[in-house]
Structure formats: C-alpha cells, structure tokens
Design a binder for these strands. Structure first.
Length: 152
DNA sequence: GCCAACGTTGGC
DNA sequence: GCCAACGTTGGC
C-alpha cells in the first residue's frame, strides 16, 4: 500500500490546474529541513499526494497526484538567479531535493479547509493542527479513505 | 494586510 | 549552546 502525503502549494505559484496541464513537475523549492527529510527519506515512487492549496480562496484539497521519481537534486539550489538559490549547496553534496510529481485527478469540487474541520473523524489530521506550517505532511490510510469518500 | 506561530541565523 | 532578532508561512 503506497504511503499517502499532503503537499501544500500556493495556487498563485503552482496550482492543481498547472499540474493537470503539465502532467508532471519537479516539486522544487522545499527549503524546510523537516519537509525535506520526509520527501528525501520517506517518499517512494507510487506514493499518493493530496494537493492542497494554501493562501487561496478557498483553501483546501483540490486533487490528487503521485510521486513518479525520487532522488533528484533540486536544480534551483544551484541557480544563483533563482529565489531558491542556496550558496551552501554544491552538486557533490546537494542539500535540497525535488521529487517528480505526476497528475492523477482534480476533484470536481475541492474539499475546503472548512469541510475538513467539519469532519469529526479528521480532527487529528496534521494539517488541521494549529500552527502546523509544514508543506509536506503524512496522511494516514484512514484519513485518506475519508477524504476519498468526501471527494465523490 | 495583519499577525501568530513557528524556523533559521548569527553574535556572544 | 543560548537566545534575540529576523524571516516565513498561511489562515483570516
């Protein structure tokens, strides 16, 4: 059974629509060590990703993707013109990683943050915990099942 | 745009 | 290794 994750993105930067159009993308720009450790050490090809829009109207889960490649060094860390440039990173010892993420589906109706909050069985979900700003979060099998049901 | 809740940096 | 200052995230 593939592990399930929730990934956050600001739709003004990259939305589920963008992923639908591109079919796949390098998930670059993660610059938080906790999130990096998850996607570097725990993501496996085939893992399922809930695509969450943050800083949006509305916020919530907009669709599903999957991990299609792992172990790729994030190219933006080497690009001095990029916002994500990291002068301390080198090609020999990359510091940041960018798995390839592929499109699966866009929900016909998003599951909004309010929907998630109103679903009592999801009260322990990481994304609902106060102050949880992590852009990559594990999702339990039960949580995924409930969300899949809500998406129909 | 505000601001709470973090995470990171850097002086000591 | 502490911790103040600063930067970022993300809901509202």
């Amino acid at each position: 059974m593939p592990q399930k994750w929730l990934i956050k993105s600001e739709p003004s930067k990259y939305s589920i629509e963008d992923l639908k159009r591109d079919k796949k993308t390098l998930w670059h720009g993660v610059r938080n060590y906790q999130a990096r450790n998850l996607l570097r050490d725990q993501w496996k090809v085939g893992d399922i990703l809930l695509f969450y829009h943050s800083n949006a109207e509305p916020t919530g889960i907009f669709g599903i993707g999957k991990v299609s490649k792992i172990g790729v060094a994030d190219p933006t860390q080497f690009d001095s013109k990029s916002d994500y440039f990291d002068p301390k990173a080198s090609k020999e010892t990359p510091r940041w990683f960018a798995p390839e993420v592929s499109y699966i589906e866009k929900f016909s109706q998003p599951i909004t943050l309010d929907d998630l909050k109103n679903e009592k069985s999801l009260k322990d979900m990481a994304v609902l915990k106060k102050g949880n700003r992590l852009s990559v979060q594990p999702v339990s099998e039960d949580e995924f099942k409930i969300i899949s049901k809500m998406a129909r």
